[in-house]
């Protein structure tokens, strides 16, 4: 079966959306899939929103640019406005409702809403909110394994931050459990 996953991750600069994308790209590479990662690096990034496009495929990747996403993860309102309409019919939209107040009216996509930032604070570290979203994505899409993600984390996190691997793992598991329990699902 061929697989082509075109992912957009978007939010404010500093939320780690670029690293989230790199994490998925590394994990894909560890699983011998074709991957590409393309950042937005223009003035839009400096103006507050940052996004990256990740493509994971069994075949050689054509465009690294994603114009119609199979999955979008959005971490603020401007990103929601821009990328919610760009999700393909049948695609997946993952929203951090701690930060996004807008609501989707689409009924042709799967939407997972997670108050990730609040949950991350409960887990003891606000900065791992994005890992809860990644965990949800892993469980829902099943295209990458948890082991590869943990392996990638060692690449994305600098060695002096490796003591944070465990709390990141907890956050990833939190996301997967939410999806298993179908918490926050609409559409």
């Amino acid at each position: 079966m061929t697989m082509l996953e075109e992912i957009i991750i978007a939010g404010f600069g500093g939320q780690g959306v670029m690293s989230m994308g790199q994490l998925l790209a590394y994990a894909g590479m560890f699983e011998d899939k074709h991957v590409s990662w393309l950042p937005s690096y223009g003035p839009e990034q400096r103006g507050g929103t940052a996004n990256c496009a990740v493509v994971i495929s069994h075949d050689l990747i054509g465009s690294p640019l994603v114009s119609r996403a199979s999955t979008a993860m959005v971490l603020n309102n401007p990103s929601f406005e821009k990328f919610e309409p760009m999700v393909k019919a049948g695609g997946l939209l993952i929203v951090d409702t701690s930060l996004v107040t807008l609501d989707s009216t689409r009924d042709d996509i799967t939407i997972i809403k997670i108050n990730a930032t609040e949950l991350a604070i409960e887990l003891g570290n606000k900065r791992i909110a994005n890992m809860i979203l990644i965990g949800a994505f892993l469980e829902q899409s099943k295209i990458l394994g948890m082991e590869s993600i943990m392996e990638s984390l060692k690449k994305v996190l600098s060695p002096e931050k490796h003591h944070l691997l465990e709390v990141n793992h907890k956050a990833l598991l939190k996301g997967t459990v939410l999806v298993q329990k179908q918490v926050g699902f609409t559409g």
Partner: peptide, 10 residues
């Protein structure tokens, strides 16, 4: 182009 310079691939 800028895209080739900025993107990551294995």
């Amino acid at each position: 182009d800028g895209m080739l310079g900025q993107m990551m691939e294995p």
